[in-house]
């Protein structure tokens, strides 16, 4: 596939694939169109995603459906308090001959073709595990058995429930910064979807439900190439660059906009964050979204659509307000988009 010569037709083919991918997941996950769209964007931006939400809203189902639809090798691990990095990499057991053996662990078991690594309840794992994950996400490689394993196609999905805070370890900022998006999964709002989820027997057994998803809609090997083609093919004009920089500035210094949030001292709210990496992720995601919408240029709507998920977890606010983080950051972002003039 020669992307330089004919990227347009390739991209339009993949556009159809992407829409089909969304439809397949939408068959089993009801009322989460926005989340599905964001995860699709993340997939085509080759970014890692952290899902966050209440218990039982379908985070795991959603990720399993995605893994199935993307195709390729898939591994998952459950985060527990006693999980150590070695447990991801090595599998220690007694062999049939009674001797202790060390085999490749979950992370290495599928070899270097691993396309999706799904980390359940990531906040239950210890910081040591987070560190390993950090390396996996940042460099797509781990060291084991005295050599380096590379996972060129790996995409990490993690989920975290936000109800329980006991025996959990908050992710370090560096690890959170590695995630392209932090997506909040909430209950479906539409009555119809809620009713189906509760009463339709189809949704009672997740395993059979997932059989509905067509497997391997996307070719994980080609995703990286397509992602690069998208980044090249979708242009960002100077006006959009100026707008993005204005947004960045506004997030870091909201007081300059005259933004006011209820019960918040705006002058000390934002302590830092919105890293350059975050902004580059933002543009990456915005480009993919523009492509998903069938455009060859990024417009402010694209930035707005992905901004909360891409940027919210990168904004560091005063610890005083940390307990009310979600509404405050949401108000901050909404305010920034209302105030910063585009283009």
């Amino acid at each position: 596939m020669d992307l330089v010569r004919d990227p347009d037709s390739v991209l339009s083919d993949w556009h159809a694939h992407a829409l089909r991918f969304e439809r397949e997941i939408g068959k089993v996950v009801l009322g989460q169109e926005r989340v599905i769209r964001l995860l699709t964007i993340a997939t085509f931006a080759r970014g890692h995603v952290l899902l966050e939400g209440d218990v039982g809203v379908g985070k795991t189902t959603l990720l399993r459906a995605m893994a199935r639809a993307i195709g390729g090798a898939f591994e998952r691990i459950e985060g527990t308090i006693d999980l150590m990095p070695g447990d991801l990499v090595y599998h220690a057991h007694l062999g049939e001959d009674g001797k202790p053996r060390i085999d490749p662990g979950p992370l290495l078991r599928q070899g270097e073709d691993l396309s999706i690594f799904f980390f359940n309840e990531i906040n239950r794992a210890r910081p040591q595990v987070h560190a390993l994950l950090l390396r996996l996400m940042a460099e797509r490689s781990v060291s084991a058995f005295n050599r380096e394993y590379r996972f060129p196609h790996v995409q990490v999905f993690a989920d975290r429930n936000r109800v329980e805070r006991e025996e959990t370890f908050e992710l370090p900022a560096a690890a959170r910064d590695r995630f392209l998006m932090e997506v909040q999964v909430v209950m479906p709002q539409a009555d119809e979807a809620r009713r189906s989820l509760v009463f339709d027997p189809r949704f009672h057994d997740v395993d059979t439900l997932l059989m509905d998803v067509e497997s391997g809609v996307l070719d994980p090997e080609a995703l990286g190439t397509v992602a690069r083609a998208i980044q090249i093919g979708v242009q960002a004009s100077p006006a959009l660059e100026a707008y993005t920089l204005a947004l960045w500035d506004a997030v870091r210094r909201p007081q300059a906009l005259g933004l006011a949030i209820d019960g918040v001292d705006i002058n000390r709210l934002v302590q830092g964050g919105a890293s350059p990496r975050g902004m580059s992720y933002l543009i990456r995601a915005a480009r993919v979204r523009a492509w998903m919408e069938g455009r060859d240029m990024v417009v402010p709507e694209d930035l707005r659509a992905v901004f909360p998920e891409v940027m919210a977890h990168r904004i560091f606010i005063d610890p005083v307000y940390e307990m009310r983080r979600e509404p405050i950051v949401a108000a901050l972002i909404a305010g920034v988009f209302e105030r910063v003039p585009a283009p």
């Binding site: 417009v299 402010p300 709507e301 707005r304 988009f337 209302e338 105030r339 910063v340 003039p341 585009a342 283009p343």
Partner: peptide, 20 residues
């Protein structure tokens, strides 16, 4: 164009994009 967009923004009290 910008002048008109500012007018749309001011009328709505926030930035108005095509999707809005």
């Amino acid at each position: 164009l910008q002048a008109l967009h500012r007018a749309f923004d001011a009328t709505d009290g926030k930035g108005v994009f095509a999707e809005d």
